[in-house]
Design a protein around this nucleic acid. Structure first.
Length: 875
RNA sequence: GGGCGCGUAGCUCAGUGGAAGAGCACUCGCCUUACAAGCGAGGGGUCGCAGGUUCGAAACCUGCCGCGCCCA
């Protein structure tokens, strides 16, 4: 076996033929962590770049939505780190009040216990115990994904420091009158037994019933329509629109409420829609927010008829019935009395559900704590309006404004035990005292603390400041606030982003919590369908990481991530991403086997071949494009650009074009080895933010350096842009592709060599590349016995005559040429049409007209050569 | 009911005024010593419909049809 010395470098590390992510990922992650690469230093001189992670629930596990969100954040952070920023990605979790309490209550229930059996202190202790033992599984899963978060700064919303932030901001808002207590209709979950804020309620169109009931008898009878017949027990009025002439004579009279015998007034209120149902509505102030407001306006009593579990508490026969049992029972009773005028079933209408447990929400009148969001929401809107905070993509700012400009006051109290307890004490004589973090609560006989805890969003709204140490003025806060960018899904723009904006601006004297909000969409399946357990199309990112690798999983997600748009993924696409990683693996493997090097400077351009100058030029464009795309949060485009550069330019062309040079050896090979090393070095750096593991493995093998994480982010060098080289290689590619097309049409085997004569190469500017063309198109030199059996006319004036030894498939060749001729004809005609249009020539920009003229000339020249080839074909 | 968005190849999506694109899928031929997780070649679209603006429209305007999301 003969071996050219230049093609075998025994000193180079050898790589297996396939990339095995499982053997790399865990080892690399541990190295990174123990080397401290993820750590950010608040005292450094480097410019800061910071991201706080949207805190996952302590009860949660990594789902594909997290994987997307984290991939984007990690890509941003890793790139900025390479660019020389002091990059901080701060991890942590929130305590997820309702969800976590539910988890532990279920465990207790399995032992036949309720939280009340334990008592508040023991229960909370138990939750902490659960958190320590099995909470936060997601943190380990984040490591699998490769998240380069600063683990030393991990935070939890219930940590002491963060709790202090909660208490501090509560006290300040309370003292300024922006937090208040009031009896209102709030959203109540009869299963979780707590109040919910508006955003914790999901509306869906459900099938219900619309029942029309006649109240009163005789001429004064009035018919009301309702979807909630069971609440009629609590009616304290009937309302009609003041301009509704049908009922004008009844306003001010009373009517007997069926089943109860109570007499209730008929009132006029502009809120009533005269077009809905009969135009008359029952008014149940204690069980409906709109009715509550009508009741306030008319001084109606609030009569509650259900308890906290949604069980009827009044009126003998119905007492003790659940609200959904009471409804048909009451309708039946009314029907027996002949009071049901109409029933519509099913009647589809919007119904609110607890976002946590899907139980139908029950509007409930109760005393709760609220934040007056008026001034806070105004500031949150203004920060975006005046450009201090940029929302990406900008179109989604409209949604943001729609929310913050119409925000209702925020119900922040929850009837739970797990969370930040409201720092308000009540005294024996009706005193109410809000206690700040450094104050001792009032003690003595008769004082007690408010039983409720705060909404989890209250503490996660403080996340960007509390995790950096607020209310203390810490070096972290000074260095990393405002954070650079917040990355999250558009679905929580109002939930969380708006709350962080309100609190950040408020607590930091108008300084915004982040400069940019980069929004991504939801992960969907390959048909654009929402992922759902019932549909069976849910992707488990850990499963993909196992089977295809973390890089493939990340690349699949990033590649689908167009700003603000949903991200479709599928297993096949993930396989494709794995294939891409393997392609990189093998390209690097080839480079190492052929002595590619990163040692020393790049040779001067005058010493480089056209092909080397071409790939370097392409690389500069790619660097510039990728930079622009990263800055615009265009992750799909980043991936697309790099994918095509790596696969098409580097692997399919550059590597193939360098093979003859490398095999030949000599100074040309030496230069090419250096360029090949340079290109891969840069390509791997560019890809590192998205696919950190495989790039680390390959880059360290290629460079013998410590880590790509610390390598500088490439910057484009305009001096290496070479239009002439790009044009030459472009031409070369067209010739090779045309010959391959001919070969394929003729059924010639890839390995079969064909003799050929090439003409017009010099005129096309690629005279020097004949050997490369022959190598890639597998064409041998024509000898004395050469006899052309076919002619391939390449656009640009190059003609290739081939001797196929009489085995030409005339029909196939004729079909090919006729197709080409038709295309050329079409092209020429199109151009002539345009140029024949006086208005076009006159009004279109000169450059456009010139381009069309050039196209016409090219098409006409092609036509001549194609026709000649056709005529030369045997009949 | 109010608002926002979308309709481009079989599927998922880029393309925002000057030659219809990508990935996957499909067809044909190949184990050509980096890679079959691969290589080469190919087929496939009156850009939802109808008007309008423009020398020129997938793109801009109007209307219609269909779909999705958010809010009430």
């Amino acid at each position: 076996m003969t071996q050219t010395p230049q093609t075998r470098h025994d000193a180079a590390p050898t790589l297996p033929a396939q990339y095995q992510p499982g053997e790399v990922e865990q080892r690399r992650y541990e190295q990174w962590v123990s080397a401290g690469y993820f750590r950010a230093d608040a005292s450094s001189d480097r410019p800061p770049f910071s991201i706080v992670i949207p805190p996952p629930n302590v009860t949660g596990s990594l789902h594909v939505g997290h994987a997307l969100d984290h991939t984007i954040q990690d890509s941003l952070i890793r790139r900025k780190r390479m660019q020389g920023f002091e990059a901080l990605w701060l991890p942590g979790m929130d305590h997820a009040g309702i969800a976590t309490q539910n988890v532990v209550e279920r465990q207790l229930a399995a032992q036949g216990l309720s939280r009340h059996d334990l008592g508040r202190d023991k229960f909370v202790e138990r939750v902490w115990q659960w958190k320590a033992e099995s909470g936060g599984a997601i943190l380990g899963q984040m490591r699998r994904l490769g998240d380069s978060v600063d683990w030393d700064r991990e935070r939890f919303t219930m940590d002491e420091g963060l709790s202090r932030a909660v208490q501090t901001v509560f006290k300040r808002l309370y003292d300024e009158g922006l937090i208040y207590q009031a009896e209102r209709i709030i959203n109540w979950c009869p299963r979780c037994l707590t109040a919910l804020s508006d955003i914790e309620v999901e509306h869906s169109d459900d099938e219900g019933e619309l029942v029309s009931i006649r109240y009163g008898d005789g001429p004064n009878a009035i018919v009301v329509a309702t979807t909630r017949a069971e609440t009629m027990l609590g009616d304290t009025a009937v309302a009609v629109h003041p301009d509704d002439e049908r009922y004008a004579h009844l306003v001010g009279t009373e009517v007997e409420l069926p089943l109860t015998g109570r007499r209730i007034p008929i009132v006029a209120d502009a809120h009533v829609d005269p077009a809905f149902g009969t135009g008359a509505v029952k008014v149940t102030p204690a069980h409906d927010p709109n009715d509550f407001e009508i009741g306030q306006r008319h001084g109606l009593p609030n009569l509650a008829v259900m308890d906290e579990r949604g069980v009827i508490t009044v009126h003998g026969p119905f007492e003790g019935l659940d609200r959904f049992e009471a409804r048909p029972a009451i309708v039946d009773a009314l029907r027996e009395q002949g009071r049901i005028v109409a029933e519509k079933r099913p009647y589809v209408h919007a119904v609110g559900h607890c976002s946590r447990c899907k139980t139908t929400v029950e509007p409930r009148l109760s005393m709760q704590w609220f934040v007056n969001t008026g001034p806070l929401a105004k500031a949150a809107g203004d920060a975006v309006r005046d450009g201090r905070v940029k929302i990406e993509p900008a179109e989604l700012a409209k949604r943001y404004f729609a929310w913050v400009d119409n925000m209702h006051d925020w119900c922040i109290s929850r009837q739970l035990w797990w969370g930040h307890r409201i720092p308000v004490w009540y005294g024996p004589n009706g005193e109410v005292v809000c206690v700040g973090p450094d104050e001792a609560p009032p003690s003595g006989e008769g004082w007690r603390q408010d039983e409720d805890v705060l909404d989890t969003w209250f503490s996660s709204g403080l996340w960007p400041i509390s995790t950096l140490g607020w209310p203390e003025s810490t070096p972290d806060l000074a260095k990393f606030y405002p954070t650079s960018v917040l990355v999250t899904g558009y679905d929580i723009l109002f939930f969380w982003v708006a709350r962080m904006m309100m609190f950040g601006l408020y607590a930091m004297d108008g300084k915004q919590p982040f400069n940019v909000v980069a929004l991504h969409g939801m992960v969907r399946d390959q048909y654009g369908k929402k992922m759902s357990k019932s549909f069976g199309n849910v992707v488990d990112p850990l499963d993909w990481i196992e089977r295809f690798g973390a890089d493939a999983t990340r690349f699949t997600l990033a590649r689908g991530a167009n700003p603000g748009s949903d991200v479709p993924v599928s297993e096949e696409w993930c396989q494709g991403s794995r294939n891409f990683c393997n392609k990189l693996w093998n390209a690097t493997r080839f480079a190492l086997m052929n002595g590619a090097t990163v040692a020393g400077e790049l040779p001067d351009v005058t010493e480089l071949s056209t092909v080397d100058r071409w790939i370097l030029s392409r690389l500069q464009h790619v660097i510039a494009e990728v930079d622009e795309q990263f800055e615009a949060y265009e992750f799909a485009k980043v991936c697309d650009t790099l994918y095509h550069f790596a696969w098409d330019d580097v692997c399919d062309w550059y590597v193939e074009l360098t093979k003859p040079t490398l095999a030949a050896g000599g100074p040309a090979a030496e230069a090419t080895r250096r360029v090949l090393g340079h290109v891969l070095d840069n390509l791997l750096r560019l890809l590192h933010p998205v696919i950190p593991f495989v790039t680390e493995e390959l880059w360290t093998a290629l460079t013998q350096d410590e880590t790509v994480m610390r390598a500088a982010w490439p910057s484009a060098d305009g001096g290496l842009v070479d239009d002439a080289a790009e044009a030459e290689v472009g031409m070369l590619q067209r010739v090779v592709t045309e010959v391959r097309r001919f070969r394929s049409d003729q059924g010639l085997k890839p390995g079969q060599r064909v003799t050929a004569r090439l003409a017009g190469l010099a005129d096309a500017g690629i005279g020097a590349h004949e050997p490369l063309i022959r190598s890639l198109a597998r064409l041998d030199q024509a000898g004395d016995e050469f006899s052309a059996t076919a002619t391939v006319a390449v656009a640009g004036g190059v003609t290739v005559e081939l001797d196929t030894r009489g085995t030409i498939d005339v029909a196939a060749e004729r079909a090919r040429l006729e197709k080409d001729r038709a295309a050329a004809l079409r092209e020429a005609e199109q151009c002539r049409g345009k140029l024949g249009n006086a208005a076009f020539v006159e009004k279109a920009p000169e450059a456009v007209v010139a381009k069309i003229q050039t196209r016409l000339q090219a098409a006409e020249a092609d036509l001549v050569r194609i026709s000649a080839a056709l005529e030369a074909l045997p009949a």
